[in-house]
Design a protein around this nucleic acid. Sequence first.
DNA 1: CCACAACATGACCTCTCGGTCAACTTGCTA
DNA 2: TAGCAAGTTGACCGAGAGGTCATGTTGTGG
Lengths: 201, 201
Amino acid sequence: MTRPDRRPLRADAARNRELLLAAAADEFAERGIDASMADIARRAGVAKGTVFAHFATKEELIAAIVGDHFAALTAVARRLLDSADPGAALLEFLTVAAGGQRQHDLAFLQTVAEGDSEVSELRNEFHASIGSLVDRARDAGAVRADITGTDVLLLICAPVHAIGFLANPEPDLWRRYLAIIFDGLRPEGANPLPRPAPSWP
Amino acid sequence: MTRPDRRPLRADAARNRELLLAAAADEFAERGIDASMADIARRAGVAKGTVFAHFATKEELIAAIVGDHFAALTAVARRLLDSADPGAALLEFLTVAAGGQRQHDLAFLQTVAEGDSEVSELRNEFHASIGSLVDRARDAGAVRADITGTDVLLLICAPVHAIGFLANPEPDLWRRYLAIIFDGLRPEGANPLPRPAPSWP
DNA sequence: CCACAACATGACCTCTCGGTCAACTTGCTA
DNA sequence: TAGCAAGTTGACCGAGAGGTCATGTTGTGG
């Protein structure tokens, strides 16, 4: 996440910040939300106090990771808005989004970062960019008429989450469930949906 | 879970056991895996020591809950095997399974109960009964040919999990995502799947 | 109805966690 | 290159977790 603070970091501090974000992302991916700050510090090769010098609380660390992730996916979505095939673009987006997840990921971290206003901002942009992607796909007849951007947003994590029940899943297996779910989004053979799409949030 | 131990419980102990299982299920549903044994005891109206008198460890408590849940769903699946419409039976099963979940549920608890052999047994029966349900639906042409019982097992939690990202979802909203995913399981307009179905586990 | 085994209790243990801070080290600027 | 602000360190703290156990209470078979 681009730091909200304007003052530039010293070179070593900037390096440590990146090391910490990377280590934290790895640790959360492996151990889930219960990854400890001490383990993250060890993985980054810094002392525990340094973690708290950069991120005042665990929630703030998580917010930074989630914010980065949202920003990266928003960039992907916007790039795909220029694609000639809107249906393929949406599928490509979901593939990139799922591919970027690890065993555990945003799924649970996001709910922790709920309160952070910066993250909310990035999440709204993310939501909006998905909305555009879905609108284009719908107009092109690539997805059914009753699907919204919010629907797609909520289903992003489903493929990776599904294979989480397996002890040693093939790393690519989520593609199978993405394909199944994406088939459910297509207009061919679509049945009416029992409930209206939710508004955000 | 029907206790593996053969000796019958005293009346008060049996009552407390049920109170504890119910309280624990509620607490895990609300607070997730981090629900504390102390809170569970309080909710059940017993002392903390009583919890450990019934379940030696937190994992054992979780295993009991997960086992109960598997057994209940296995019973539902078996009952639906007699249904005249195999496609509707599978959808009904998924509806009951999703309806029985709360905000958080088996999704994460199952991975904790991984080691318990009793739970493994119940999970295998559960898996087998879903397999029969899916086989019948496939033979009737209600689901696509390349879908297995394991696929359905992995997707059971997806609808409820999807709405978990919303702060205050309508309690029935999961039905929408179940409908979408189930449409993805139908033969109409099915595209080839990129990866083969996983074996269990 | 009694006696004993089964059960319930809550104070207590240890361990780990997120978070703090005074003392120390180091990159940057003038 | 000197000096200082910026950054790092690791011992330390309180809270709360899972788990234990001596003691008190109670259901139940004879």
